[in-house]
Amino acid sequence: MMADKQNVFEELLRLKENSYSPYSNFKVACLIYLSNGEKIKGVNIENAAYPATICAERSALAQVYSLGYKKSDIKSLELYTDSETLGSPCGVCRQVISELVDWSAIISIYNKNGFQLETNIKELLPHAFEPAQLIK
Results as ranks from 00 to 15, higher is better:
Leu124Ile: 10
Ala3Gly: 04
Val92Phe: 12
Pro22Arg: 06
Ser104Tyr: 12
Pro126Phe: 06
Glu10Ser: 14
Tyr80Lys: 03
Asn113Tyr: 14
Glu123Leu: 12
Leu15Cys: 09
Tyr110Phe: 08
Ile40Arg: 01
Ala48Phe: 05
Thr85Cys: 11
Leu117Asp: 10
Ala128Cys: 03
Asn7Phe: 02
Ser19Gln: 05
Phe115Asn: 07
Thr119His: 07
Leu67Ile: 01
Gly37Thr: 00
Lys39Asp: 00
Glu99Pro: 01
Phe115Ala: 05
Ala52Met: 13
Gln116Trp: 05
Gly42Met: 00
Ala56Gly: 07
Gly87Pro: 09
Asn7Trp: 00
Asn7Gln: 12
Val28Phe: 01
Phe26Tyr: 08
Tyr110Met: 02
Glu57Val: 05
Leu134Ser: 10
Glu57Trp: 00
Ile107Trp: 03
Glu78Asp: 07
Lys70Ala: 15
Asp82Val: 04
Tyr69Ala: 04
Val43His: 05
Val92Ser: 15
Gly42Glu: 00
Leu13Phe: 00
Glu46Trp: 01
Glu57Pro: 00
Ser83Asn: 15
Gly114Gln: 13
Tyr65Ala: 10
Ala49Pro: 04
Ile32Glu: 02
Leu67Asp: 07
Phe9Gln: 05
Leu13Arg: 09
Val101Thr: 06
Asn25Asp: 11
Leu100Cys: 14
Asn111Gln: 14
Ile107Lys: 09
Ile109Asn: 11
Lys41Gln: 09
Glu11Gln: 11
Gln63Arg: 08
Ile32His: 03
Arg94Met: 09
Ser19Cys: 04
Asp73Gln: 08
Lys122Glu: 14
Gln6Phe: 04
Ala52Glu: 14
Glu78Gln: 10
Phe115Arg: 07
Ser59Ile: 00
Leu79Ile: 09
Val43Met: 06
Gln95Gly: 15
Gln63Val: 02
Leu117Gly: 11
Pro89His: 06
Arg14Leu: 11
Lys41Tyr: 08
Gln6Asn: 11
Tyr50Glu: 11
Asn111Trp: 11
Glu99Phe: 10
Glu99Leu: 13
Leu31Ile: 03
Arg94Ala: 10
Tyr33Leu: 01
Ile107Asp: 08
Ser76Pro: 05
Leu12Phe: 03
Glu11His: 10
Pro51Val: 01
Asn111Glu: 13
Ala29His: 00
Ile40Lys: 04
Glu130Arg: 15
Pro131Asn: 12
Leu31Trp: 03
Ser66Arg: 09
